[in-house]
């Protein structure tokens, strides 16, 4: 592999790692917040447990979408350059 080509590929791989790493930061904290509040809610009104669990999962799935964007971009960077 030539030097210039190698630098481009290497930058893409390093970028993939940083993309996934930083992209995982926000969703992790956010999903944890959702789950913590769901624990609180279930403790306060245990009769709505299944409703709260479902809402928690849907909310977490939506907050995770930015993490999935990062995953897609990281995979594109790894495999398409």
């Amino acid at each position: 592999m030539e030097l210039a080509q190698g630098i481009v590929k290497a930058a893409a791989l390093l970028g993939a790692g940083m993309c996934m790493g930083m992209g995982a930061l926000g969703p992790g904290v956010g999903e944890g917040f959702v789950a913590g509040k769901a624990c609180e809610g279930i403790a306060r009104s245990p009769e709505n447990a299944s409703l709260i669990t479902r809402t928690m999962l849907v909310g977490q799935a939506v907050s995770e979408s930015t993490g999935i964007y990062s995953l897609v971009i990281a995979l594109l960077l790894i495999f398409s350059t």
Binding site: A61, E64, S65, I68, L71, V72
Partner: peptide, 9 residues
Amino acid sequence: LLDIVGEIS
């Protein structure tokens, strides 16, 4: 499209 990726993830 996001939902399809979500199912795979």
